[in-house]
Nucleic acid binder design. Structure first.
Length: 266
DNA sequence: AGATTCGGCGT
DNA sequence: ACGCCGAATCT
């Protein structure tokens, strides 16, 4: 057989490999197809597919699938949006997985070497821990999360959460899922309590009075009822997980005994 | 079954 | 002209 020419791909996290296969017959003979293999061996044959899998892990905006390199000049020329409805999803109902989403620019879940600066002890940026949490943020940046959907590695879209009805946005035209994203982000990024916008002024002029360290929801109160509801949710989630684990264990066991009985060769 | 390969639709 | 993905074909 042909020796597979799988090369390491420096633009992707460690362990990812790229393969180029030349078509040898048919009308398209001479053309080539490019594939990528994840560290775990899963094959990827298009950029959208890769995007879906890597999700928010990495920005593939300037990643060129064919060459496997980052191409800084690939700043997508977004048409004249921003004029009518800057927050709407891209026309055609499709979401641009390349650049539309606010995503981390580094592959944080992968182990990657970082530059350790030792020769500049006074370096503010590398030294000052406060600075990291004081990065300026775009007003209403949470809105860019609109349309994001959680999914597992098989690309199945998961059910979204429901918000308690006591939660309201301080900005008009903010759909429920945007608000959910905003609150989820706030919980995720800070260990401080999430109180919502305390100042009523924020409702009249969010652009001026919004407390940027809080999500753009109105101040809310948590009732005992809320807590009971949430406890129920957690219990149900745990039960689901338990069942899934059990089912998986049984399936594996059955697979193994079957293999033994049939004298499976592999 | 999964892997490989080319066609062809849509942009 | 080419990216993407369905499906025929191969192992």
């Amino acid at each position: 057989m042909m020796e597979k020419k799988r090369t390491d791909c420096p633009a992707l996290p460690p362990g990812w490999r790229k393969e180029e296969v030349i078509r040898k017959s048919g009308l398209s003979a001479g053309k080539s197809d490019v594939y990528y293999y994840s560290p775990s061996g899963k094959k990827f044959r298009s950029k959208p597919q890769l995007s879906r899998y890597l999700g928010n892990t990495m920005d593939l905006g300037c990643f060129d699938f064919r060459t496997g390199k980052m191409m800084p000049g690939k700043l997508q020329k977004n048409k004249q949006r921003l004029r009518h409805d800057p927050l709407s999803l891209a026309k055609g109902g499709k979401l641009d997985l390349n650049t539309a989403l606010p995503i981390r620019q580094t592959a944080s879940i992968f182990k990657q070497p970082v530059t350790k600066v030792t020769s500049h002890p006074g370096n503010k940026v590398k030294t000052d821990l406060q600075r990291a949490s004081e990065q300026p943020r775009q007003l209403f940046w949470e809105r860019r999360l609109k349309g994001l959907r959680p999914s597992d590695v098989t690309e199945e879209v998961l059910r979204t959460l429901d918000l308690p009805n006591g939660l309201q946005s301080v900005v008009p035209d903010s759909s429920d899922d945007t608000l959910l994203s905003a609150i989820a982000s706030a919980l995720h990024m800070s260990s401080a309590p999430i109180t919502g916008q305390a100042s009523v002024a924020a409702e009249k002029n969010p652009a001026i009075w919004l407390n940027t360290s809080q999500p753009f929801c109105k101040a809310f109160t948590i009732t005992d009822e809320h807590i009971r509801e949430q406890e129920l949710n957690v219990h149900q989630a745990r039960r689901s997980l338990e069942e899934a684990l059990m089912a998986d264990g049984l399936a594996r066991a059955a697979e193994n005994t079957q293999a033994l009985l049939e004298g499976n060769t592999t």
